[in-house]
Write a protein that binds this DNA or RNA. Structure first.
Lengths: 171, 171
DNA sequence: ATAAAACTTTACATCTTTGTAATGTTTTTG
DNA sequence: CAAAAACATTACAAAGATGTAAAGTTTTAT
C-alpha cells in the first residue's frame, strides 16, 4: 500500500499552482523548475490534472496553467483520485487473478469488508483536507508541523475511542 | 494508492490459517484450493508470511503451515506491513526522482507532512483491527457487514469530529 | 508572416510488480 | 531405503507503472 509517484508529484504541481491563487499562472517550465522535475514529466502530470478539470491551460506564447477553483474548495481526495484512481479496486471479487474464474468469496468476503472500511477511512481523511490546509501548513515553519503533533498526541486518543467504542463494539 | 495483490492475497491465506487456530494446520495445496490461487503463488505468499514470523512451516510428508499467534493478537498493520512494506516511502524527500539530486522540499515539505499524517491515520486503523475481528465479521452473514454500517453512519460522525475539531483546529 | 514560447500527444525505454515454472530439500510411510 | 508428499528457492515471463523523447499544434510578438 503506497502513495504512487504520480499522486505525489501531481499533488506537488497542483500545490504550486494553488499557491499562486485563481488569478495566478505558471508555465510548465516554471513548475518543473520549482519542483525539481523534468519538463516532459511535469507536462504529463499537468495534462492529467487538466483532464480531471483541476487546472486549466492557456496555450501560446503567454500561456501557462492556473488552478480552476479556490484551494480551499479542492480536497486531497479529488486530487489523489484524479491521479491514482480509486483506492480499492471496484471489482475486487469479480476480477480475480487466481485459478478460478471468479473469487471464491464473492458472496461472503471478509477481506472485502475490511478493505472497504479501510478505504472509507482513508477517503474520509482525504476529503477533510484541502489544498489550502497544506499551503497554510507550509507557511508556518514552526519546526513541528501539525502532522507531527497529530501523530504524537491529541487525535490519537480520540481515534482510539472511535476504534474501541464505536468500531469494535459494532463488530 | 492501492492495496497491492500481495497484500490482499497474503491476507486471505493468513486468514485461512487463522480460522484453523493455533493448533490447526493446512498445506499449501489446501490453502490454494480454498482461496482459488495457484499452488506456486500460494507457496510464495506463505513464504513471505513465514519470513515475517506470522506463520510457521512443518516440512515433510505430514507437513503444512500453522499460524504462530492467536488471531486476536495479530493486527492488520503487521500483516500489511509484512506483505507490502511501509505505507510511505521512508526517504520521501531524499530519494527523489526528479532532475535534482535531492527533493527541493527537504527542509520545508508541506506534502511530506500531510502524507505522514495520512499514513498515521491508516496505520492507526490497521493496528486496531485484528484477524479475529475479520473472522467474526465473516461468521455473521447478516447481509450487512459491520463495515457497511460503519461507512453509512455511526463512525462517520465521530471521525468528522476528529477532522474538524481536533485536526483542523491545530492546523 | 515568421519565429519563439508554450501547451499536446504519441511512442518508447526502463523498472517494478505479478504470477509461473522448475528444481531442490526434508520428512514420512510402506 | 525408496517413493511420495510437502515445503524452499531461484529464475523467468508478462503486465503495469515510471519517466523520457520527439514531433505536433496554438498563440503572441516582432
Amino acid at each position: 500500500m503506497r502513495i504512487s509517484s504520480l499522486e505525489e508529484y501531481g499533488l506537488r504541481c497542483l500545490l504550486a499552482l494553488a499557491r499562486e491563487g485563481c488569478e495566478g499562472q505558471l508555465s510548465i517550465t516554471d513548475i518543473a523548475e520549482m519542483e525539481g522535475l523534468s519538463v516532459p514529466y511535469t507536462s504529463k502530470l499537468l495534462s492529467i490534472l487538466r483532464k480531471s478539470d483541476l487546472v486549466s491551460a492557456v496555450r501560446g506564447r503567454k500561456g501557462g496553467f492556473c488552478i480552476k477553483r479556490k484551494p480551499d474548495e479542492i480536497t486531497l481526495l479529488e486530487v489523489i483520485t484524479a491521479l491514482g484512481g480509486p483506492l480499492i479496486n471496484p471489482d475486487h471479487c469479480s476480477k480475480f487473478s487466481g485459478k478460478l474464474d471468479t473469487c471464491v468469496h464473492v458472496d461472503s468476503c471478509s477481506v472485502h469488508g475490511v478493505l472497504d472500511t479501510l478505504a472509507g477511512t482513508i477517503e474520509l481523511f482525504l476529503s477533510k483536507t484541502t489544498l489550502q490546509d497544506l499551503i497554510e501548513q507550509g507557511n508556518r515553519q514552526t519546526g513541528f508541523t501539525p502532522a507531527d503533533t497529530l501523530l504524537t498526541g491529541g487525535i490519537q486518543d480520540s481515534t482510539k475511542e472511535i476504534n474501541t467504542l464505536d468500531y469494535k463494539e459494532r463488530l
